[in-house]
């Protein structure tokens, strides 16, 4: 029973190895980059524009809007990181309709790498927004006693991110694999469709959690506005 595409190794030289996770990731990167390049090559500012450009504009503006709604006032700054997170996870799960493809997000290494990236990005964005002192002070709020708990929270949420995504993606692929052996015809197709939905939901969850973490880290904690007096 194979749980992760990491286990398919095409080439290995000591520590270095070329497994299916990396290869599929490269494929996805190529797909995203070439697709984006092809579409944005013929961008126009006129009222009439291609449907591909419309699609990309919708996706980008939706992501930016989501980031803003979560509480980050300048979404352009975070769009590169958070948007790519979403797109990578979403496209990785969308491509599961291709036979023979295994999503790189079904590998705990990939999800761990993504979660680690989030774990590093959160303090980076927090420091760039508030400064080092202010950011570090947020760990001892409301009291000094909370410091270990805050640190544990950082680590545990990173772990949760990685495992949640891995579990969902891996389970989806695995369920399909199991079902193929039991009911080879119709049922796996339904499950694949369900898997697409799950994949999109997971992508959204991963993206929105990362956004929330960053928003929490970058928000300057000023005095709360007093509630309006009730008459």
């Amino acid at each position: 029973m194979r749980l992760s595409p990491d286990e398919i190794v095409f080439w290995q030289a000591g520590f270095f190895k070329l497994n299916a996770t990396i290869v599929f990731t490269w494929s996805l990167m190529l797909l995203l980059a070439v697709g984006a390049k092809l579409i944005t090559r013929k961008l126009t500012t006129a009222h009439e524009r291609s449907r591909w450009q419309n699609l990309l504009e919708i996706i980008v503006t939706l992501i930016a809007k989501q980031i803003e709604e979560v509480g980050l006032p300048h979404p352009q700054k975070y769009l590169g990181f958070l948007g790519t997170l979403f797109l990578f996870v979403a496209v990785a799960s969308l491509c599961t309709v291709i036979p023979g493809y295994e999503p790189p997000t079904g590998s705990l290494s990939t999800t761990a790498a993504l979660a680690l990236c989030v774990m590093v990005a959160v303090p980076l964005f927090g420091i760039s927004e508030q400064g080092v002192g202010k950011y570090l002070k947020s760990y001892i709020r409301p009291t000094f006693i909370m410091l270990p708990f805050n640190v544990i929270s950082e680590l545990s949420r990173t772990l949760a991110l990685a495992v949640r995504l891995f579990g969902n993606m891996m389970s989806g692929a695995m369920i399909i694999g199991i079902l193929l052996t039991i009911t080879p015809f119709v049922f796996p197709v339904v499950m694949t469709a369900l898997g697409l939905l799950t994949g999109m939901v997971q992508a959204y969850i991963f993206f929105i959690l990362a956004t929330v973490y960053i928003a929490a880290a970058t928000r300057t904690r000023g005095p709360r506005p007093e509630p309006a007096p009730t008459t």
Partner: peptide
């Protein structure tokens, strides 16, 4: 389940993808 080389490679891949997406999208 975690292959640390793959983790590093994927992190790098992701950062490259971030740059590519910023650049092209």
């Amino acid at each position: 389940l975690i292959d640390w080389f793959t983790v590093g490679a994927q992190a790098l891949n992701f950062l490259i993808l971030v740059w590519l997406m910023k650049r092209f999208l």
